[in-house]
Design a protein around this nucleic acid. Structure first.
Lengths: 112, 112
DNA sequence: CATATAATTCGACTATTCTAGAAATATGGA
DNA sequence: TCCATATTTCTAGAATAGTCGAATTATATG
């Protein structure tokens, strides 16, 4: 992963509304959620949310797919994983005990 | 972890200079790096870097400690781990195979 | 085809963030 | 004490991001 796209992804997530939307999608799994459903859950104006989903999509963190009148958004787990891996790349100068807290990440998810 | 502090951490990382600085510190491990050494490595003005290190510190992602005339900065692995865990919390609606890419994160680090 | 629903795009305004020069503070040594 | 080094703080201007109303596009249905 390149610096530029990592910054874009982080900037996309560094916003209350977008982070909330993204987490909803992460939790929703493969089924994803329609833009309107997200707007309702997060109590956001549809146009504002749309702009923000666009920013997440451009960063590669979510994908979208039209389904009838709705557009379904889904978290893009691959991109997510690359971003997290980039942040801890070559970490801790070879002293595993120092970065043990990072192990949480795996267990927080389904890897457990 | 709360939304507000997650956003602050992500915003702190969503900047070329700060992300580069943070990654240097992550890779430096427990020894950390002096502010001046970082400025030299990253070719940044010391005052600009100082401002940016302040932002990382306020977000809790790095710690600082004076040592003689220098100030040593270190990555704060705990905070880092909490942030990553927050991003994948309750992910993928119980379908581990969907979020398998996230397993990379652990192996990218010393957990391997 | 007319209408309703779902979502996006446009435009203008406000607010925030970024950078760099200059000045200030802290430490160590002659 | 005086000076050099290391870093931070202050300040102002430039650039960027965020929001919302209004208009637009796409799809489904009577």
């Amino acid at each position: 992963m390149e610096m530029t796209s990592a910054v874009a992804s982080l900037a996309a997530l560094a916003h209350e509304g977008r982070l909330a939307a993204f987490r909803q999608l992460v939790q929703a799994g493969g089924a994803g959620l329609a833009a309107g459903e997200l707007a309702r859950r997060l109590d956001m104006l549809p146009n504002t949310l749309s702009t923000n989903l666009g920013i997440l999509a451009q960063a590669g963190l979510v994908t979208s797919q039209r389904e009838g009148r709705s557009i379904i958004y889904r978290a893009h787990y691959d991109a997510m994983g690359e971003l997290l891996a980039y942040l801890v790349e070559d970490c801790c100068a070879g002293s595993p005990e120092i970065c043990a807290p990072l192990a949480k990440v795996a267990s927080g998810c389904c890897a457990a």
